[in-house]
């Protein structure tokens, strides 16, 4: 008999970072899996099932890079029962851990190519894992352009890390906040200080300066304004479904083929191992054949963009 796939191990919470507050706070947890005497091996884009005693499980993307020297991290937004319970835990507490699950990004096929990483909100978590992998193997990839958008400056996650990228110019970085625009410009000029305005009514008139990193506008619009070339480029986007839809539309308009665009699908998984049937779409289970899919694959899957 093969190993029990439901076997979960304990993981100690070694560190907690409060990424942002507000009604849906986001925290990043550093976990020490107890049974993994060796490194907890995974691929960027893979997920784990986290459980809190008596509360249930939550399927979350791994946010740390897969390299040996990185501790395992997950970024969790407080939205439901389990994630609320997770947010009540402290350093030194234990969670249950199963995984890693899912397919991960096909990074081996992306070596030598230029990459666009387009993230929004807490959806940046799997892209952070990918970004750390790229950072550790920088010479294997071409130009890397990173787009990340949050609702407001306060809602940005991984702020210190982005600030470091801004300073070191490891990647071409485009950070943005979705600001609510009034008829005469942003509603609060002070809050948007340092965030260049993108003219939403006429994207072509928006000039992106070479050293410009921070913008005001929605992620899909920033991507349009930058207008990256599809030449030998793979675009990976994770974030709210509405953002993904518009990013994909925009990329197609820029000439990206469906096999050059990748995203991750979210479903409420139970088993994580392709048995419970709950994440079924057409002939696939998202938890095993996904969560990473190319847009070419998604076009053939009913309800992929439900």
């Amino acid at each position: 008999m093969s190993a029990n796939p439901y076997l979960l191990q304990r993981a100690r919470i070694d560190w907690i970072v409060q990424e942002c507050g507000g009604p849906r706070p986001i925290r990043t947890y550093t976990l020490d899996p107890e049974d993994s005497t060796e490194h907890f091996a995974f691929e960027p884009g893979q997920c784990v099932q986290l459980s809190v005693l008596g509360e249930g499980e939550s399927f979350v993307a791994i946010a740390s890079g897969p390299e040996q020297d990185e501790p395992l991290q997950v970024t969790v937004m407080r939205v439901g029962l389990v994630t609320t319970a997770l947010h009540e835990l402290n350093i030194g507490d234990f969670v249950g851990l199963r995984g890693p699950y899912g397919n991960g990004f096909p990074v081996d096929r992306w070596r030598g190519k230029d990459l666009l990483l387009i993230g929004g909100g807490v959806g940046q978590a799997p892209l952070r894992s990918l970004l750390h992998h790229i950072e550790a193997n920088r010479s294997e990839f071409g130009r890397v352009q990173v787009f990340y958008g949050a609702r407001s400056p306060e809602a940005m996650i991984y702020r210190e890390e982005f600030a470091a990228y801004e300073a070191h110019r490891d990647f071409d970085l485009y950070l943005s906040i979705d600001w609510k625009w009034g008829p005469d410009g942003p509603l609060d000029e002070d809050a948007c200080e340092g965030w260049a305005r993108v003219n939403l009514s006429n994207l072509r008139s928006t000039r992106i300066e070479q050293d410009q990193v921070r913008f005001t506008g929605f992620v899909p619009q920033i991507v349009q304004a930058v207008a990256p070339s599809p030449q030998s480029t793979i675009a990976v986007t994770c974030g709210p479904p509405a953002m993904i839809r518009r990013v994909v539309e925009g990329l197609e308009g820029l000439g990206f083929g469906p096999d050059q665009i990748y995203t991750t699908l979210e479903r409420r998984m139970k088993c994580g191992i392709g048995l419970c049937g709950r994440c079924n779409l057409g002939p696939v289970f998202v938890c095993t054949e996904g969560p990473v899919f190319s847009y070419a694959q998604l076009q053939d899957l009913p309800e992929a963009f439900a």
Binding site: L53, G54, C271, L275, C276, G277, R278, N280
Partner: peptide, 26 residues
């Protein structure tokens, strides 16, 4: 049909729970 779900059935004391799998339906 093989779909299933599972839930944490927590003791009233809160210090133990059974994870119960049951048939689910689409």
């Amino acid at each position: 049909c093989f779909c299933y779900s599972y839930e944490h059935h927590t003791a009233i004391t809160g210090d133990s729970a059974e994870v119960v799998r049951s048939w689910d339906s689409c």
